[in-house]
Computed example of a mutant assay.
Amino acid sequence: MQIDLTGKTALVTASTAGIGLAIAIGLARSGATVIVNGRKQDTVEGAIADVVREVPGATVRGVAADVGGAEGCDAIVAAEPAVDILVNNAGIYGPRDFYELSDEDWTRIFDVNVMSGVRLARAYTAAMAANGWGRVVFISSESALNTPEDMIHYGFSKTAQLAVSRGLAKRLSGTGVTVNAVLPGPTLSDGLREMLREDAQKAGLSIEEAAAEFVKAHRPSSILQRAATVEEVAHMVVYVCSPQASATTGAALRVDGGVVDTIA
């Protein structure tokens, strides 16, 4: 399948590393003009360099802004007032006990993981609809369907993304704009690599081997029995953003290695 996004402009939030950077590279490789985003100017510039190194000749711009607040979202829209593809990748996570989280913690998680996508979709999708073409993707998680007891806050936010993406797809019915959610499972991102590094060294394992052991221990329902790569997640996202995915909308598309034990 040859995906051609020439002439399309794509914004990927939180795309200076990990899954977000892999998505940015994948979209650039398909011909899209890519806007990378991060909170700091130096990391944004580094991501631009990473994309160009992987895709020589790519057209890449960047906006440094914190999408976890309305001000940061407004700054992105002011800098880049029109996009054809919006990938809402920004998110924060980490194990925290339910009783340790304050109201402020819950509000911050909701702002970053949910409201960032709401604000940017509200800003961009009306023009997409007027143009008769657009793609919106929310990067959710298998935790949206399988809430972890040590990350209830994270699972709740990812479930909320599914509700927003499904409802927005209905709202944009018949416009040529598709809205979908992609649900990664355990993924060998920079964060997981760092978390596993010390234990891997002690056990004499590679990071990939340590990640596989982690998946078997903490996600025993995994059919894949290893962590996905960031590129494997990005492949699904690039497809959903493509013209070939024109009949896929309102969907929750799992790249979880079969962790969620359901055939639906």
Score class of each variant (00 low, 15 high):
132 G>S: 06
106 W>S: 09
10 A>E: 08
152 I>A: 15
242 S>T: 11
144 A>Y: 10
3 I>D: 01
153 H>P: 03
173 S>H: 12
50 D>C: 05
120 L>C: 02
225 Q>Y: 12
43 T>G: 07
110 F>L: 11
10 A>S: 08
176 G>S: 03
41 Q>T: 13
228 A>Q: 11
239 Y>F: 15
260 V>N: 04
186 P>G: 06
255 V>K: 04
90 A>E: 01
224 L>G: 11
108 R>W: 01
148 P>A: 11
29 R>D: 12
67 V>T: 09
16 T>R: 10
232 E>G: 11
76 I>K: 00
90 A>K: 00
233 V>R: 11
78 A>N: 06
108 R>Q: 12
112 V>Y: 00
127 A>Y: 01
161 Q>N: 14
230 V>N: 03
130 A>G: 13
204 G>V: 06
91 G>Y: 00
49 A>P: 05
158 K>M: 14
207 I>G: 05
245 A>C: 14
164 V>A: 08
245 A>S: 15
238 V>W: 08
33 T>S: 14
177 V>F: 13
244 Q>F: 12
35 I>F: 02
6 T>H: 12
76 I>D: 00
64 A>V: 07
144 A>E: 09
78 A>W: 05
58 A>Q: 04
197 R>Y: 13
8 K>M: 12
128 M>L: 14
141 S>M: 04
28 A>H: 08
107 T>Q: 14
191 G>C: 02
96 R>E: 10
114 V>N: 07
141 S>P: 03
198 E>D: 14
257 G>N: 07
257 G>D: 07
62 G>E: 02
208 E>R: 05
199 D>W: 09
16 T>L: 07
193 R>M: 06
112 V>M: 01
